[in-house]
Design a protein around this nucleic acid. Structure first.
Lengths: 243, 243
DNA sequence: CGTGTTATGTACGTTGCCGTGCATAGCGTA
DNA sequence: TACGCTATGCACGGCAACGTACATAACACG
């Protein structure tokens, strides 16, 4: 299912500059890493890391984005974070843990660049800008996870759906998101019917329209007016730390 | 009840070895840091960091423990993590963010050792065991926050109260916790009455007894049987990363 | 010993979400 | 064109937690 892209754009690693962490590197560091970057093609639903599995690579998404999920013993799931072109998947490798007790799954198909754990660690240990960027990104991710914790506790399904749609829209190049209510329900940790109901209301208000696995963002401004504060907090903190 | 210890134990910084991160340092590194460690006495409810405020110190709790909280615009709050002798408060300083959008508040009074940001950073940048320990701890904290996110979504007030009591009990030297239902409600992000109801049920089952701001853990084993899986996951991950 | 304050108990209607079961309607494919 | 599959719609009872309002009981302090 995963194919290595052979196109000229990515063959020399330049496409990797679409990842904002890699793009922010000093050219000296980037040149060191460039030969280690390998473009791969993620398809929807693909599992990047299984919970507890030993990680071999870190992934720098460009056009793809990846969901960090936790699965309970009874099989119910909930999302704790979302990683796109601003970030990296596999922080446990440089944080020193080697594994994490959660799963990473492709939520928007596209390209990511992967790098072998050892190559990443060698550069990380130099203690330069690469390390600095990865740690700042990790802090932004912590904010995102924290906010998810609080949002899950205090806000309604409808608000959380707005937040999730906006976050996903930010990571997508199009106004059309390809996902079913069922899929979203696993992300939000609610019943499928709960998503359907909330989506209906958003559709009635003209914010979105949807049909069999396709959701179109019609009025982003109205969504922003409807979402809980959590969206802004995470967004602002990302800007503060990464821009 | 807790006074600043003036005895030989803390005067030379040895009391700091009650913090497990500091205790795990090679003696060479610890000797470098020892002069920078300053014991302080935290009292209940004291605010260690305000949300967004510039941080001057990192804190290594020994007998105290600190709650990481987020406050919504409407004033409602919820806890995202809990730091005791196994950890450090102020990770944003070495992660490179300088501030965090949340508050840190003393939840169990006692001693902590603080260190100026600059001294901590100097040692961190050496890239040795100190850095390694702090990053591994940060990963354990991420797991804790993630699990809180999921737990908030999927489990009942009663289960979450069990989890919170067990976690707090782990960080406390006594079976008697000094806190009101009101206080706990702010941690769990629920109404005070919700805590009272859940506590009543736990008391009826003989797990705890309580009275006006004092909660006694009577049957830890039964609490463990009653709590959701989240407690174990966080506990195990802490052991894996920090023991 | 009385008084104010704080912690806990109780009650009642409301609501958001759950669990379940089944109905309909697009869409792909034969 | 008919069929089957999958995505969405709908309906019902149930429950946990909410918001609100007020009652009691322990303790602190004069």
């Amino acid at each position: 299912m995963v194919q290595t892209t052979k196109g000229n754009e990515t063959a020399n690693g330049d496409g990797a500059l679409s990842n904002r962490l890699l793009a922010a590197l000093p050219s000296e560091a980037f040149e060191r890493l460039r030969p280690e970057l390998e473009p791969i093609n993620f398809s929807l639903g693909e599992v990047v890391y299984e919970s507890g599995a030993h990680m071999q690579y870190v992934y720098f998404p460009t056009t793809s984005h990846i969901s960090l999920l936790y699965t309970m013993l009874d099989g119910s799931t909930a999302e704790m974070g979302l990683v796109g072109q601003e970030g990296v998947v596999g922080i446990a490798l440089f944080m020193g843990g080697e594994t994490t007790p959660n799963r990473a799954m492709v939520q928007g198909r596209g390209i990511a660049f992967r790098m072998k754990a050892k190559a990443m660690l060698d550069e990380f240990k130099r203690g330069g800008e690469f390390q600095h960027l990865l740690l700042r990104y990790t802090q932004a991710l912590i904010t995102q996870i924290s906010q998810t914790a609080v949002c899950n506790r205090l806000h309604s399904v409808e608000q959380r759906l707005c937040r999730w749609l906006l976050m996903t829209h930010d990571l997508t190049q199009s106004d059309e998101l390809q996902m079913t209510h069922e899929f979203i329900s696993h992300m939000l940790g609610v019943r499928r019917e709960g998503v359907t109901m909330a989506a209906q209301r958003l559709q009635e208000m003209g914010m979105i329209s949807y049909m069999r696995g396709h959701i179109r963002i019609l009025d982003r401004k109205q969504l922003l007016a409807h979402v809980c504060e959590c969206y802004r907090v995470v967004k602002d903190e990302h800007s503060r730390l990464l821009d």
